[in-house]
């Protein structure tokens, strides 16, 4: 990859982001700019982008690199088109996130932090992403896919593979995180 440049639209966005901070504190724009660059580069942050942004913000390379390595949401290696972030924290694990990992292993042939050969999927096991009521949860790019089991997760993967549209949210049709069934004590006499 040669020198990194923000696309025309993003360059305008950068200009707008920089207005959020006083000019002598523009280093603070590093997170939104990294995020923008990561989106532009297909889900990862190449070193050229870090170099271009640190230069733009007049901070040293190492400071930019520190930020990029501190935040786990910045990916410093090329990612698949779909970034599967399986939550492996206790509630999701109890509700079957291990099975979902098994699906990736069996059907995509990838384990944690690996990318499929066709460059479509990258699997990352993450810590709690804050949707425990709908465990197990997988975040695919920007969307949450909830209440999954092996079958529903596999279908999502198949659909993504075939470039079909997938529906985010609960796989069992729950509304938000409302109770799955009416709870016994809520019964009327």
């Amino acid at each position: 990859m040669t020198a990194f440049k923000f696309s025309k639209e993003n360059a305008a966005r950068v200009k707008e982001i920089l207005t959020h901070y006083p000019p002598d504190r523009k280093a603070s724009a590093i997170l939104p700019l990294f995020e923008l660059a990561q989106r532009q580069c297909g889900g990862w942050l190449p070193k050229e982008a870090i170099e271009a942004i640190t230069e733009m913000l007049e901070i040293s390379l190492i400071r930019g690199y520190e930020v990029a390595t501190f935040y786990t949401m910045f990916n410093l290696k090329p990612m698949g088109k779909y970034h599967l972030q399986i939550c492996g924290t206790t509630p999701c694990m109890l509700r079957g996130s291990e099975d979902l990992k098994g699906v990736c292993k069996r059907h995509l042939g990838i384990e944690n932090k690996e990318t499929t050969k066709d460059g479509l999927f990258t699997l990352t096991e993450v810590e709690c992403i804050g949707a425990c009521a709908n465990a197990p949860v997988v975040q695919i790019n920007d969307d949450y896919f909830e209440d999954l089991d092996e079958k529903s997760f596999l279908k999502i993967l198949e659909d993504l593979k075939a470039d079909r549209k997938v529906k985010s949210g609960s796989a069992i049709g729950r509304q938000g995180s409302a109770p799955e069934k009416r709870r016994p004590h809520a019964k009327s006499k």
Partner: peptide
């Protein structure tokens, strides 16, 4: 005044080093 060293990563994985 010329920042060359930094702390990469976080938590237990934090490492001191130079850029690349």
């Amino acid at each position: 005044g010329i920042s060359e060293l930094g702390a990469m990563g976080r938590g237990e994985d934090m490492e001191i080093g130079t850029y690349l």
